[in-house]
């Protein structure tokens, strides 16, 4: 029990980071993490101790986030004004990505691509763990990552570069 809670506790910073990147709102993100922890702790009996706690927590967090999006689509979304980046001038250097630009670009991604890319690029999870969290085959994960990276490239104004040939 204490072991379980200690394991959960070590995951909290990563959960907060991931939730912040998903929601772009400090309070919403921490609410999401709190809901996730409450659910995980009250349902710990359902947790198979053989699997990693971290993957289980991320799965719960994502399910809660998707549910909250579904209900907030009816209410209209709220965005913390502080998290909206200042408009920036387009990148002058080819290949350069302004952070503000990236912050806006990540918002334009479809949710399934955003979830996948953040698990890999931000959280540094292995492909197999991310696929487990998302409940998809690894091939599907890879194609989401590919589409997310291509979309970000366009959204950050780097589409002028020659497009990568599809290589088999």
């Amino acid at each position: 029990m204490t072991d379980f809670l200690d394991q959960v506790e070590t995951c909290v910073p990563a959960l907060r980071r991931y939730a912040r990147a998903l929601t772009r709102n400090i309070d919403l993100a921490d609410d999401l993490v709190q809901d996730c922890l409450e659910r995980a702790i009250s349902r710990r009996a359902l947790f198979r101790p053989t699997g990693p706690v971290r993957a289980w927590l991320f799965t719960i967090l994502l399910n809660l986030y998707r549910n909250s999006l579904r209900s907030s689509h009816r209410r209209g979304q709220t965005v913390d004004i502080d998290t909206i980046p200042e408009p920036s001038t387009p990148a002058t250097q080819p290949g350069h990505i302004a952070l503000a630009e990236m912050a806006r670009a990540i918002e334009t991604l479809p949710l399934d691509q955003k979830e996948a890319l953040l698990l890999i690029a931000l959280e540094g999870l292995s492909y197999s763990e991310a696929a487990t969290i998302l409940g998809i085959p690894q091939g599907t994960l890879m194609s989401r990552l590919g589409r997310a990276r291509a979309a970000l490239r366009v959204a950050t104004g780097n589409s002028a570069e020659p497009h990568l040939r599809t290589v088999k």
Binding site: L5, E9, V12, R16, R17, R20, A21, D30, L37, L122
Partner: peptide, 26 residues
């Protein structure tokens, strides 16, 4: 892209965890 994502959001993972997110307390 990955570097930009980490630069944007990684700091959120180093902030002190508020009391309401302490697993033992929950």
């Amino acid at each position: 892209q990955s570097n930009a994502l980490r630069a944007l959001f990684a700091p959120a993972g180093s902030e002190p965890v508020p009391a309401r997110l302490r697993a033992h307390r929950i």
